[in-house]
Design a protein around this nucleic acid. Sequence first.
DNA 1: CATCTTTGCTGAGTAAGCTCATATTTGAGT
DNA 2: ACTCAAATATGAGCTTACTCAGCAAAGATG
Lengths: 205, 205
Amino acid sequence: MRVVVMAGGGQRVGRRERNKQEKLERITAAARELFAERGVDEVTTQEIADKADIGAGTLFLYAKTKGELLLLVQNSTYAEALAQGKADAERVPDELEAVMSIVRPVVECNRKQVDNGRTYLREIVFGDPQEPHHRDALLLTVQTEQAIAEVLRRNDRIGADEAATLAHIVSAIMFVSMAATINLANPVDDVVREIRDQVRVLISR
Amino acid sequence: MRVVVMAGGGQRVGRRERNKQEKLERITAAARELFAERGVDEVTTQEIADKADIGAGTLFLYAKTKGELLLLVQNSTYAEALAQGKADAERVPDELEAVMSIVRPVVECNRKQVDNGRTYLREIVFGDPQEPHHRDALLLTVQTEQAIAEVLRRNDRIGADEAATLAHIVSAIMFVSMAATINLANPVDDVVREIRDQVRVLISR
DNA sequence: CATCTTTGCTGAGTAAGCTCATATTTGAGT
DNA sequence: ACTCAAATATGAGCTTACTCAGCAAAGATG
């Protein structure tokens, strides 16, 4: 077996692996740009392939469906929002407001481009959970729930199990409020308010 | 103006209207049968048109999309389940169990054919709310929330607004539990239990 | 370097939901 | 009964996500 030169890190990286990585990056960049510009529904997979300078079929070796491609693109944004929210929540003493500190950045990032945000949610719930980018997205929602549960556990009267269940409910509230067509034209603040009203009733009884 | 013979009821019903009505019924019947047999994803609109003995394009004069067609078919089942649940709830004194009396038939009817049930939910949340069958479906979810709110208002310590908000939260919990891929293979009882666990935490604190 | 195997790429082809120009049917006016 | 306008039906054709049989590149072997 030919031993491939090992760069500083120690991973064996052949041309094959490098090519693949580079292509994935081109695809991600192309998809991100086009989706952001015109919305996922107004972009064809052909356009993305052209912009990434690969064959139309190659695209589907890197993301099994167009939806997976959106997950790939949006996951990193979601991850950033979650990190922001977790940091914010630590500095907020009030229970409800701490939860909302986590909620707000997520809603904001989801609403940057409403159609993409809603399609992203749709993919998370109805897409194929076996796919890698979907798994990443699912992990993010789990982490979001954990962050919320952590905040709720500050309250001594809320046990670990109860906190987890409550966090799961908050997650459901977020999903429906962000996805509901009735909120399609509403600005971020309105959606956040709608969520806050429900979370308040949920946790302060 | 030619006055059309008015049958007993007094509505003027020309051949035009009758033909349309009859076609809609043929379409509904064909779609219902095929969807139930093989699942919405395994049936083509062409097949439905053939079975209903109409042209492929005609189908889309009666339902703008395939999803609308599913709403058309499933709405009546949902309506029955809701009626059942409302009746059941009246006979159950316990608060939580009364809510679950409404939840259970809805989950049962939604799970009769899992794929169709999930697609139905997807259409409700992400479909075009302008379309008639979608409006009907939305109305049913509103009625479900109202039924749940009514049960909750039995408790003197819960005001009308709070009951409505809680019912809305129950609705979100139901949606996510029924739609989540993680529950795809789970039997009705498991899903109902998952919902019950959350509703218990929600209302009995 | 020559050969072989494995992995990855390609784009023409397929399928299916939906559209739209054209044709047909209905009903009103005369 | 004849004519005209409006409503409705039709299916060939379009779009687009996705597939697959064949091809190319990378890496292993001697």
